[in-house]
Design a binder for these strands. Sequence first.
RNA 1: GGAUGGGUGGCCGAGUGGUUUAAGGCAGCGGUCUUGAAAACCGCCGUGCGUGUAAGCGUACCGUGAGUUCGAAUCUCACCUCAUCCGCCA
Length: 424
Amino acid sequence: MHDIRAIRADAAAFDAALVRRGLPSISADILTRDGERRTAQTALQEKQARRNALAKEIGQGKRKGEDTASLEAEATALRGEMEGLEKRAADLDAAIKAILEALPNTLDPEVPDGPDETANVELSRQGEPRDLGFEPKQHFELGEALGMMDFATASKLAGARFTVLRGPLARLERALGQFMLDLHTERHGYAETIVPSLINAATAYGTGNLPKFEEDLFKTTDGRYLIPTAEIPLTNTVAGDILNEKQLPIRLTALTDCYRSEAGSAGRDTRGMLRQHQFRKVELVSIVHPDQSVDEHERMTRCAETVLGMLGLPFRRMLLSSGDTGFSAARTHDLEVWLPGQQMWREISSCSNTRDFQARRMNARFRSADGKTVAHVHTLNGSGVAVGRALIAVMENHQQADGSILIPDVLRPYMGGLERIAAA
RNA sequence: GGAUGGGUGGCCGAGUGGUUUAAGGCAGCGGUCUUGAAAACCGCCGUGCGUGUAAGCGUACCGUGAGUUCGAAUCUCACCUCAUCCGCCA
């Protein structure tokens, strides 16, 4: 959510930010409504002040046994005048809010301009795609040959875009989640958290998922939503709060199932378990002082990179372009892992600094250490990392010529010491 | 699902129609005292919006939304939510 005072202070900068998002300049329209709202509000407040004075006078008069009929008549008349002004101020306020809440976050100056992911910029790379010495298979070919990845049964149970995993492959998915959680809690300072998988509308609004992107969510019969990411409940844990500056930074992590309708992605990634209605993800969320969000964004991205490095997966860090950066983010780093079977880099983590955009929507603030000022916190979120896609990446990168899969060292303690997944 | 009782500032908590300008306490901030700290004492101390160069002034907010009234934290209605008990249940 944008700050109306910032728009008043520098309308040109606001419009320029919208242009970068491919949107028309609308500051003039907003400021016109804002001016009308303030005029109506000021007039209303003057009448409220008069009403309050009259009410006090009437109270005191009645106490003394005086006749207050004429005062009461004036107050009654005043009430009629106030109704129109009150409605006008409220309507304008709602109209301005409706405009502002549909606008995406302002982009970081370093974000490259471009229409879509083709304009993303590679910032760094760790590990290189290597020649396996044989024709690499895709994860679903490997999984089905092992008899441990079953799309037909999943389809029978639920439909397209679901997967049934069995045996050691199912355990590998569990191992990945445990490994990531242990890493982030023991080494990276994130507090392990269990959150609801169902959220109400206010919570989805706070992170920017509502009202614009409702079609991406699964909605329950009682009006709640299945979480598409733990970012939403984790970030909203501080909604409405005024935190003490000493509490910052707050770092939270959770392993949850994520549910996405994948509306609008028909036909994309239909084979395998790359794009599912349900997948597991370890999420990282940081609530920080505004001065710290840039550093925290780098730190968070490195926490996610550490996971991939320890799993022996080649990856690169991308800075998303203006056209590919999400609604709530000011700047996003995607981590793309190399998939030998696909011969492609695929997103496995996305780390975003939303600055105060989400904090404004959910009214999450902190009081300065000296107790004098209250300001919005900055919030960041990142995948640390997507478990289902990590499973794919491990399978494809550590596949052997015979179709077995070598288990990375760091996962073996979570696999009961198993070193290799092979067909039974 | 049924019954009952609640929701007041960062926290606790008083307040059943009119000097409430929401008491009091805790926490926090500043100060006095002290070598320093603690204690004690003194002062400050909710959020948003409007207005103003500013100091300030005004206004709204007591779970949310409507309503009654000249006037609502207080009365009415609906909803949300929490607690406890009963029922059911992993």
